[in-house]
Nucleic acid binder design. Sequence first.
DNA 1: CATCTGATG
DNA 2: CATCAGATG
Lengths: 292, 292
Amino acid sequence: MPPKRANESNDVEKKEKKVKKDDFSSDAKTKDGNPWNLKVVSWNVDGLRAWLKKDGLSVFELEDPDIVCLQEIKCSNAKMPDEVKNMKGYKSYFMPAKQDGYSGVALFSKLEPINVTYGIGDETHDDEGRCIIAEYEKFFMVTTYVPNAGRKLVTLDKRMDWDPKFRQCLKDLDAKKPVIMCGDLNVSHKEIDLANPKGNKKNAGFTQEERDGFTELLDAGFVDSFRHLYPDKTGQYTFWTYMGNCRAKNVGWRLDYYVLSERIIPNLCDNVIRTSLYGSDHCPITLLMHFD
Amino acid sequence: MPPKRANESNDVEKKEKKVKKDDFSSDAKTKDGNPWNLKVVSWNVDGLRAWLKKDGLSVFELEDPDIVCLQEIKCSNAKMPDEVKNMKGYKSYFMPAKQDGYSGVALFSKLEPINVTYGIGDETHDDEGRCIIAEYEKFFMVTTYVPNAGRKLVTLDKRMDWDPKFRQCLKDLDAKKPVIMCGDLNVSHKEIDLANPKGNKKNAGFTQEERDGFTELLDAGFVDSFRHLYPDKTGQYTFWTYMGNCRAKNVGWRLDYYVLSERIIPNLCDNVIRTSLYGSDHCPITLLMHFD
DNA sequence: CATCTGATG
DNA sequence: CATCAGATG
């Protein structure tokens, strides 16, 4: 009898072998016919160090992105592996949570941003490492890991405290320059955005409060770029719980988004969900933009 | 790049493949020429459930033992896997610690014992699941997991409280019938019993106090059967820390013993250290006895 | 069913 | 460098 490994279900070699760099090429254009010249990747990695072992970094080779945003890195700066700290060809920015092994976001950028700030200006939330803001010439890049409302909604209060503060933060940025915000927003906006809407109306990620929070964000002058491009596309998810083989059955949730200032929608080329990539219970999402 | 698994170093397939049932046959005899007819296996499994995944149960097939004693099962009765609870061909006895996932011993016996008792009669120690006593016609079988003195000897006091109590317990049994005691005694008795005696004189498992405790036990009328049979054999260990590839380098400790009442030494056939078996940071030890 | 920490060894 | 629990998701 061959000994079983503790994490045999992590054994995704076969699936990953199928992935080729060609699959990540795109000739997407703006509505006006301008080809993309900026690529962003966003991925909730569910523990950066575990994700590294599952070859998560290959997304850099496969996508050759200009900007990469990671959420739930669960890794302090002290424990950050060198290969990530000094990502070849990129400037790296980290906002770990104060609590070790919890939350935390990272941003990697080929081009050095004009300025980088951390957090939304609220101490309690910012202790949890949930937001990095990178300013570029033509836009703000914001990545976030929104508070999860928790099992039995134990942290729904924290979440509902976050939503207006984060929204205000984005509005303030948007008053200066267009915003590209991405990350794990920990909500599926509409019934189309998760496999089991009926059963989840009282669960974290699909309560009316959380959904309304997202609606309010869009009403403040922002656009869910994926749904803008594909208003009726079903079965498009970015997260599947590890439990019950949900990913194979595509019983998932769309929790990861690009949310853009309305006025740069003309710059949008595409928003792709990379379901072929493993390494986390979320898959990465890719944004293609054109800027003159 | 193939993704690395979290526990790649557990991947001992090759090593285990080499093990054949033949390697476990023995024609050992007593000094008087009587062939063995009782086989005991003792193994500190360092977590029974992890050990199961590493095919630890194969020791039952390979050895076909009459009695199996396991230490550090780290598993409550509630969480005990069925295949272990109802071990085919054996009666099973468990003494888990009150604290979940800590310590705990088990005993499996082909022949149903006359009586089975749990603990040494000291509530504090017995809450930690450290001893099972099975009475047979001609002997008491005792298995134990002796308190570890801990890093920086933080629990040396507990250990030194244990030693005389356990010794008295064995003496009381020995007054009735001969005793076969086995388990992880958490001490290397003499310099020959560990790879690095010089460096470990102030470390758990080789302090003077612990070594003296073992000497006192032997002075009370008991025999370390392995050392009795092989007084000068070096490099014979039963434990290697997972750290620093110690097992491959045989930088180990002899911590697991059979300790017999002096008067059944004539019944002793052999005591074998099964270094070919993996599944824990300890290896199993096997005792062969003859009883009329 | 995963990630992490922290206790334990 | 492993085991386990418990928090978290």
